[in-house]
Write a protein that binds this DNA or RNA. Sequence first.
RNA 1: GCGGGGGUGCCGGAGUGGUCAAACGGGCUGGACUUAAGAUCCAGUAGCUUAGUGCUUACGCAGGUUCGAACCCUGUCCCCCGCACCA
Length: 805
Amino acid sequence: MEYNFKNIEKKWQKKWEEKKVFEVNENSKKKKYYVLEQFPYPSGSGLHVGHSFVYTIGDIYSRFKILQGFNVLHPMGYDSLGLPAENAAIKEGISPKKYTNTSIKNFIKQQKALGLSYDWSRLFWTHDSEYYKWDQWIFLKMFEKNLAYKKDSAVNWCSKCKTVLANEQVHNGKCWRHEDTEVDVKHLNQWYLKITDYAEELANFETVKEWPSLIKKLQKNWIGKSFGTEIIFEINKKKWPIFTTRPDTIYGVTFMVVSAQHPKLLDLVTDERKKEVKKFIGKLSSVSQEDIDKLDKEGVFTGSYAINPINNEKIPVYAGNFVVADYGSGMVMAVPAHDQRDFEFAKKYDIGIKQVIDGKITNSKAYVGQGNLINSESFNGLKNQEAIESITKWLEEKRLGKKTVNYRLRDWLISRQRYWGTPIPIIHCEKCGPVPVPEQDLPVKLPEKIEFGKGNPLEKAESWIKTKCPRCKGEAKRETDTMDTFVNSSWYHLRFVDPKNSKKIFDINKANYWAPMDIYIGGKEHACMHDIYIRFYHKFLRDLGLVKTDEPAVKLFVQGMIHGEDGNKMSKSLGNVVDPLNVIKKYGSDALRIFLVSVASPESNFNWSDKGVQGTYKFVNKVFKFFEKVKISKSSPKVESKINKAIKEITLDIENFKYNLAIIKIRSVLESIFEEKTISKKNAESFIKLLAPFAPHISEELWSKLGNKNLIILDKWPREDEKKINDKFEKEDEMILKLKSDINNIKGILNKEQTKVYVYVMPKEVEIYKNIEGINLFAVNDKEKYDPQNKSKKAKPGKPGIYLE
RNA sequence: GCGGGGGUGCCGGAGUGGUCAAACGGGCUGGACUUAAGAUCCAGUAGCUUAGUGCUUACGCAGGUUCGAACCCUGUCCCCCGCACCA
């Protein structure tokens, strides 16, 4: 019979669905296991093969764990709020909701074609108000705890997205969605989440030991914890704390620089300097972000002076373009002798340079190395490393400073001036200020009737905006900003444990049963965005008492990228995008799945190859063919050994995500058992099971053909029988291969048609070689043997003598 | 500048101290089958050498440790990626 993958795949997908084999609950005696792939953003162009790759990786693991006897939660949902949907909808002239729903339907169809083991009963999408209601609920909890707040600041604005962006969404001064669009700086009043309150905990990677070191390093870098000293300088009788990692150079401070974007900058500017400073600020705001990055260090004197607490020296305060407004206190103490940036600034504006560490300062370079202190009064002679300690101690005693820690991480700007996002549940009342929407009034639903045009459509939805203040019942207006799409995905892993709950965000007991995810699979690009946000939210929900674990996921698996056949990133413009549905149509989902994980290890990048899929297709066919012809009765000891060894090794390979190696071993087993006439039922079943996580459809088919009434996925993962593994068989195989290759070799050398092959072996080895076709086999001690050139003398154990004629 | 990853055959990619001229896949060459193509099967695919052998050269480059290195150490070149004026 032909291997008809189309019928086979449909048939078993239907069976799985009918029997609800992937639907799970908490009332199981089995141990729980939670597998999740990062849910997709449903776009109109549908799934591409990169998606298929991620889901296949997760699915193989999930099925493997099911077979191993775990109670496996493997859900799927859609991250459906966000800008691309809104933009695409506008372009097509339909509502974002309609656009999104269509996309989701399409995604589901494609995912089902892949045969993924999802518990579809838990499906949800984030644009469902029953979902984003809980985004709003979390926001209110954060608001209550002062973790959600609104502030004025310089923010990144993308002119294409027509909204502000979080720090994490600016890559190289460009928008993360628009590589060609520089972000502009605007001063706006925006909502933030105080993720920095969790910076300390997020910078601790002990709790995510099993995450890839790459991700941990990227996050560490991003969070940027640095130890230093906060020193209080006095300016115009007001105290200004300054963060520095080099308090040892405090005697070398010759000026201060406050960020040109600092909200309190103008407070520092004297009347006579106002004009100059404003001119400077104006100049900065008229150039693009990229140009600012390229600019020299520039600044302008504010007219104010600071008092250096260590020696009461009067120091001029400048406003500068190179100081970051929201790092530390937005002002630095400048030590031109020992910091290159300060050095350049001082040279440019002709400010004094005072050396306080012994070392060589040149005409163009500050001395930033180690050394002993000079020009530092009672601290002279100290090694600068020691001076960091002692000067900090001195300041602490005088209450002029303290040891402190600073983070590069900024608070998360979540305001977006767009429609297709979760409305921020705040009502602005002239009398009461910003008032949270009462919990019972949630969700604040997105209005359906809106007009797209210029700016945020919500701002023009007047009947939606107009409301009553929950506090004073007076006239009030709704907040029109929506939340960043990353908010929705920051806690979805917990909603999956109880997705239909309309009373609570989720049931605590269910969360504590399933959380944390045992394995979370996704892309590297989220290292400093989603992968940090989800940790932050999880910790916040923990602090609300809703979940006990500190981290969302025990293990994070980062998959590689699939590039086009030409080696380029898949993109429409290059025309190298591969649609998984087309592949499935041609070769079936089993062949696709195997191909995706067999080219390289799942964490590395690889190129799509049509030939490659053809190759795996042939392999699947061969499996089918083998079971068509083999008789189920007994296995030879060799087959027993091969199968049992494969079970042992493949179990480990899958456990460690070495899918590619597992496939190689399965192939090699098939190769070595292919010529067998019979095989035991047990061995046959084990082989099929080893294949089952990778090629679930054909496995079910072959399993049922063996007469099994249950589903293979509901059966048990095989266990090796160590006693049956015998390396003797491997060696014998090698001996036979070697003999064959020797014969070929000799044939090649003789370069003539040799038709008769005589082989002389040790009497004990006759058994091993007796089944080789096309040879005349003799034991060396056989007196009747034909051996005109006395080649039997060359025979040694494991190495027969050969004569050709 | 700081941080990370990597350089293996025609290609993708295994391999982290001996069993490596290097798994597996792809490509290519030759052969079998076929009217032919495809599929399938067999053989070959660093060089020289040889009745099944032996030798040489090979894992970016140059050294070192070791009885022994693709694998450990040092230096060096190249590629990719992340952060980038964070005080």
